[in-house]
Write a protein that binds this DNA or RNA. Sequence first.
DNA 1: CGCCCAATTGAAGACGCTCAAGGCTTGTGG
DNA 2: CCACAAGCCTTGAGCGTCTTCAATTGGGCG
Lengths: 279, 279
Amino acid sequence: MANRSPTDPGFDPRVAYPAPIQRDIAPYMRPDPRQPEESTMLERHFMKLRARATLTAEHEQAIRGLISETRDHPADKVVVPAYVEQTHSTLLLEGFICRYKDLTNGRRQITQIHVPGDFVDLHSFTLKYLDHDIMTLTPAKVAHFPHEGLRRVTEQFPALTRIYWFNTNLDAAIHREWELSLGRRKARGRVAMLLSELQLRLELVGLADETGFAFPLTQVEISECTGLTNVHVNRTVRELREAGVVELRRGRVDVLDKEALWREAEFDPRYLYLQKRER
Amino acid sequence: MANRSPTDPGFDPRVAYPAPIQRDIAPYMRPDPRQPEESTMLERHFMKLRARATLTAEHEQAIRGLISETRDHPADKVVVPAYVEQTHSTLLLEGFICRYKDLTNGRRQITQIHVPGDFVDLHSFTLKYLDHDIMTLTPAKVAHFPHEGLRRVTEQFPALTRIYWFNTNLDAAIHREWELSLGRRKARGRVAMLLSELQLRLELVGLADETGFAFPLTQVEISECTGLTNVHVNRTVRELREAGVVELRRGRVDVLDKEALWREAEFDPRYLYLQKRER
DNA sequence: CGCCCAATTGAAGACGCTCAAGGCTTGTGG
DNA sequence: CCACAAGCCTTGAGCGTCTTCAATTGGGCG
C-alpha cells in the first residue's frame, strides 16, 4: 500500500503518491483544442443527465453559469476532506475520484468510484459537511459549483432541482448495490459487479465500449472497494482471467465475455436507472 | 419475541406491540386532542426534521396537507415492491420497516432499517421505481404522500424541498456507514454499530433512551443487516453480552455500557448529521 | 541499471459459514 | 391445565473463504 499519512506536516501528495500506472484519460473523445475548456468538458455531465432526464437548453445554460472555477488536481490527493464545512460542490471533468471512509489500523472502505461527468459531492449542498473524504485516484480536472448558485437553482428551476435530487438518489442506489456486494457476494462476484457497473457508467459518457475501458485503479484500491485484501483481489482477478471472463492489466479492463461477467456478478443494471424520463 | 402472525384475522398491532418505552410523543407541540390521528402521528417525523433543520409552521402545514391516506400493514409484508412504478412515497408512523435486496440462493441484504418518523421511500419521488423491496419487520402504520404533492412542494417551497433533499442524502450517508461496516468491520463491530446507530435514531423520535430501546428484529434479520449468518450473530451477541456491553433479548436492547458499545463499533455519530441548521 | 511500486505467489491460520441437533418461549387447542 | 406445534434461539463440529505474513517478480522511470 502507498504511503498513507496525509496528516504529516509538509505532506506533498504529488511526491507521496506518484502516478502508479500510465493513465489514458480521454481516449475516446477529442475536444476542439481551441474551445474554451469548460463548455466541452461539461459535455460528459450533460451526457449523464440526458441519459436519465429531459434537460432543456435553459437548464444547460443555467448549469454553465454555476461554475465558479475549474481546477487540476494530482493523483491521490484529498480534494474534499471529511467533516469540513463546504461552500461549493465539485463536478469531475476528467480522471477518477473516489469517496472513502477509514477505520483504525488502516482499514479503508471506498464507498463509491466517480467517473467523468459525476458530481463527487453534490450532497454537500444540503449536508454542509461530508461524512467521508473524497480523493483523486488519478490526476483529475474538476469544476466548482458554489452552493449559493445551487440554492438559486432550487428557487428558480424546480425541474432542474429534481434532476439533481435524482442524481444524489442515484448515488444512494449505487451505495445500496455495493452494500449488497459487500454483505452477500463472494470475492469474484464483488469484483465482477464493480467492473460491470463501471463499464456501464463509463459507456454513458463515452469512455467505455463493449470490449472494455481504461481503468487505472491499483489492486489495493480495488480491494478497498470490494472489502477484500489486495492479495485476495489478485487471486480473484486471476481466476476471472483464467475463466476467460475479464482481463485486468496495466490500467485497462478488457471484457472478454460480458455475459459471463454479468452472470458472475449477478448483475442487474436497473439500479442505475438508465431510462430517460421526467424527474 | 412479540407476536409475528400478521395473517391472523383481527390482528391488532396496537395490542400486539404495546408501546415498549414510554413515549414523549410531542415535547415540542401539543396538538388539539380532537384532531384526527395523523396530526399527532406526524409528530415523530417533525421531531426528526427539527433535529436537523428549521421547519416553519407553514412547512408543517404543507406537509400535513400532502397525506392522501394512512394505512396499517401486518409484519413481514412487502409494502413497496422493487421495480414497480410508484406514484406516492410512504412515511413510517409506527413500527419497523426495512429496505432489502436479494440475490440467488436466498442471500438477502437489508440495506437500511427505518424507524418511526422516517420516509421509507422518499427517493421514489425522483427515481419513479425502487431498486429494492421495502418490507415491514413489525406491524406498521404508514402515511402516503402522493408524488404530485411533493412535486408541488418543489415548485412552491424551495426551503422544504432542500430539507427533504437533505433527508434522502442522510439516507445515503447511512448507506455509506453500512458499506464501511460490511466491508471493514468484524462481526462484533458490525452488530455494535447497528445498535449504536439505532439507539441514536430512536432517541431522536423519543423511542429510546440511554438504557436501551425496544428492538423487535430476529437474529436472522440482524444477520441480514450485518452480512453475517444468524448462527454467527448469535455467537457475536453472546460475546457482547458476556463482555457486559449490550444485552439483546426478547425484542429489547439493553445498553449496559454505551461507551464500550461505541468503542466496539468505532462509532462516530457525525454521519447522522445531528445538527440543526439551514439546509 | 537500480529504485520503487505494483503485482504475484506460497504457507499458515483466523474468522465466519454450513450442517445438524436440541432447547426455549409463546400461542393454540383439547 | 396440559400437550403440542411453530418459530426462534443456542450450541457443537468440521470446513472453506479470505487474511496475514513473507518473499519474489516485473515494469516504468530517473
